[in-house]
Write a protein that binds this DNA or RNA. Structure first.
Lengths: 337, 337
DNA sequence: ACTTGGCACTCGGGAACACAGAGTGCTAGA
DNA sequence: TCTAGCACTCTGTGTTCCCGAGTGCCAAGT
């Protein structure tokens, strides 16, 4: 049904349309790409492609524009991820190397990605649930208050103030801290509820209410932060582009953690680090945009996702190259720290 | 030069233009506000106001539009801050009361303000320099690495990983922690450099290199975070409004911490909590926008600023009311925690 | 069987134009 | 000092017209 030349025509249409932002006609197409056939032939192919739903014309007697289906075919079969230039790779490396803590890594990453792709970049914070406890700290603030600090192996720090039901001396706090660390150190966060479930029972009765209070806050922290934090950058890049769904909708989606999460998508368990591309109507909520995302994380376990969001009409090979490269570098950084 | 009626005319022009977004003419003005004079008289007044530079006409034979100078006069002398409704106040209270930590307070505040004003809200994190040390924590991560955690009285937590020059046992770490806390607890952050300057000398020689390393990281943290973190929300509200300086510029400014900082302005030392309004060209960098800001903080010392950014054509009385109210509530929350 | 050139057709977008309406400035009168 | 009237000047809108890019289709060529 679709011979090689028709595919070549589709590829050419996508490439031209992406670079010019104007519907591309048969004549211009035949000469710009050396297809070695006449415009008339191209027209026939275009008619076939349109018949199949890969391209469409905005109105009669205008050039053709790729449909979501067309982009999909292009991404899947007609294009190759374009690797970054050496200069770009160096820039990434040096820029990310300067990060001092997890917050900084994430902030730098999202800015870097935005600048590299000239789109809106989105980065999800490493998921708590898949990381492990590195340390639990109890800091006495006053007689009846302690601050609970949870440090994970990804460098993430969560803290909460705990109001204690009774007055507790510092030595007892220190003891509880030792207790907690002995119990939890190195364990996966998802197994924490299980591990602490019988902890109060193993303690002297007088400690139980206090420890129970602390544990309830700890568990609450785990649950609350279960839905993950997401940051974005490069909103200014939206100014130029035009979205079928208004600019307002896009900006609103960016500030809605939940929507953003859905857009980034879940890490598919089989090929965790692979690039995911969602084109136009394939996206939940935001149908006028495309999302290119990838998982990242230290070593084998994927911690979270990052990606960019842009108009359907984007340069997929380049964008995919940038996302993939950044995901890899961030993974390296996290693994090293 | 400007009698009462002319001022009334100016006020009416500002109010009408803000609500309709269209140049306001003499006829409509004379009937909508009961000025008890004829359009012709209003025209004369308008001519005078234009002469003085308070209003201008986009083109001959269109209505008048306030200039920056006109808005300035309106804000300074012709309007009163409009207090929030009881329902709004309750909403603020309940919404902010649910915050669990400082991050949460800031996030909720910025969203609240954006929703309340339908503009872009900007909130600066409480300045480290004016807060005090509540606790310093050293958490051993491995033989040669500790995590330094700094907790301030505003609930802010800064953490850094410190690479030690030599292997250090946990007991020594505990000792250093006690040392540090004895030295710094309750002190203002700005006095930390001074306080720790002679600390190594008071220690046994074998501890000096390690402590010096830790201190250098501590000081670095203070310096680096000196330029403060700023967050914003409500960018979607920009979609409708039109800015003389392109939308792109505004979005770029929002992502530039430095620019944003300049826009919020410094807390004027004499009247710290007062509302600051910068109109159009009074703003550095972004001249097409207005900024309404106020300081906030627990008790007397102003910790940081918050505010909104919007088109010059905004409803100043309402916006100022919202900013003032939110600043007060946040201050309360911070003082209580 | 596919490709090519030719040709008539169809729209969108821009230029030219006219026109109504809103608003102004000015002058003369109350 | 205010008001009424009047002539003038714009912008925005609607209309018309035309050009050109692009198409679909057909018949001829390879």
């Amino acid at each position: 049904m679709l011979d090689d030349r028709k595919l070549a025509v589709l590829r050419a249409i996508v490439e031209d349309y992406v670079s010019t932002n104007e519907p591309v006609g048969s004549k211009a197409l035949a000469e710009r790409h050396n297809l070695k056939v006449s415009p008339a032939t191209v027209r026939n192919d275009m008619a076939a492609l349109e018949e199949e739903g890969y391209i469409t014309q905005p109105h009669t007697s205008a050039g053709r524009v790729p449909t979501d289906k067309g982009y999909r075919l292009f991404v899947d079969r007609l294009s190759q991820v374009k690797p970054l230039s050496a200069a770009e790779r160096r820039a990434i490396e040096t820029f990310l190397a300067g990060a001092v803590d997890l917050d900084d890594v994430v902030t730098r990453t999202v800015r870097l990605l935005a600048q590299l792709t000239r789109q809106v970049a989105v980065v999800q914070y490493p998921t708590l649930t898949r990381s492990t406890v590195r340390h639990v700290e109890l800091v006495p603030l006053s007689e009846r208050r302690v601050m609970l600090v949870l440090i994970t192996n990804t460098g993430r720090v969560e803290q909460r103030v705990v109001e204690l039901p009774e007055q507790v001396e510092d030595t007892r706090v220190a003891h509880m801290r030792a207790m907690l660390n002995a119990c939890l150190d190195g364990c996966g966060l998802s197994s924490v509820p299980e591990l602490v479930s019988d902890l109060p029972e193993r303690l002297p009765p007088e400690d139980r209410p206090v420890v129970a209070t602390i544990l309830s806050v700890l568990l609450e922290t785990l649950v609350e932060r279960h839905d993950e934090k997401i940051v974005f950058a490069g909103a200014a890049n939206l100014a130029g582009a035009d979205f079928s769904t208004g600019l307002r909708d896009v900006l609103e989606a960016l500030e809605e953690q939940v929507v953003l999460m859905r857009l980034l998508g879940e890490t598919s368990s089989d090929t965790p680090a692979a690039l995911t591309v969602r084109i136009g109507s394939e996206n939940p909520y935001l149908r006028g945009t495309s999302v290119v995302a990838a998982g990242y994380g230290s070593g084998d376990n994927q911690l979270a996702r990052l990606g960019v969001l842009g108009p359907t009409r984007m340069d997929y090979p380049v964008t995919m190259g940038a996302v993939r490269a950044v995901a890899r570098y961030v993974s390296q950084i996290l693994a090293a720290s």
